[in-house]
Design a binder for these strands. Sequence first.
DNA 1: CCAGACGTTGTT
DNA 2: GTCTGG
DNA 3: CCAGACGTTGTT
DNA 4: GTCTGG
Length: 230
Amino acid sequence: MCGRYSLTKPPMRLRVGAEVVPLAMERSRYNVAPMQIAPVVRYRDGQLVTDELRWGLIPAWAKDAKFAAQCINARSETVADKPAFRSAFKSRRCLVPADGFYEWAAMAKQKLPWRFVRTDGEPFLLAGLWECWEPKEQPALREETFTILTTVPNEVTRPVHDRMPVILDAEAALRWLAPEATRETLSALCVPCPSDTLRRFRVSTVVNSARNDLPECVAPVPEQIGFTGI
DNA sequence: CCAGACGTTGTT
DNA sequence: GTCTGG
DNA sequence: CCAGACGTTGTT
DNA sequence: GTCTGG
C-alpha cells in the first residue's frame, strides 16, 4: 500500500506529458502521513495546477469526516465500482507528487520501515483521486481530500509488502488526468511500475511516528544481519 | 418500502 | 448519492 | 501507515 | 480491542 511518503526537495519540476508543472513548497516533507495536507496536481479551469488537499478521501455524501482515515488508499482493481470512490474515479482524478514512499515489513512483532525511491532520482507521480466534502449543516467544515491508488507489487516491493502505489510516468500521468479517459484506458494504467525503476533501503523507525518529520526519516540504515524484516 | 453501508491493510 | 439487505 | 488514547467531575 | 490523531 502506501501509508507514508516524502517530498524532500522542493521546489520540484513535475513532468506531466509535455508540460512541466512547478511545485513550490514552503518546506521539505520527510514524513507525509494520512490526515495531513499535501500537494496534488489536477486540472483547474483547464490548467494543470498544484493544490493543497488533505490525505484521506471523504465522499461528498459522508455524514462526518471519520471516513477519511479509512480511505487513504483505493484498490485500483475495484475503485471504479466502490461507492466511496467511483464518482471521483470518473471525474476527479489527480496526481500525488512524492520523491519516496515507505512500506513496513512485518515479522514477528517487529515492523521495520523501508523507503522506496526512483533509480533516476526523479519524483514519483502517484495515481490519485480527490473529492470535495461540505456538510450542509456546517459549510465551514468544507474540505478537499485525496486518496492514493494501489496495485499488486513488483519485484522490488513484493518482499516488503503485497501492495504498492500506482506509479505513473509522465505520459501515463497525462492519460490519467484526461477528462474523457475510458475506464478501460485507466485500468490499463494501474499496473506495478517496472522493477528497474525502483530501489529500496531500510530506514530508521524514527519514521514510524507521524510526529517525526525529520531528515533522519529518509536516511538509509544498515540492514540487521539475519533480520531484515523480509 | 426503509435502513444501513459505503474502506484498506494486515493478521490469524 | 447509490446500492444492498431485510 | 503507526502511535497513542481509551473518562468524568469539579476546581483552579 | 478499537478508535482517533498525526
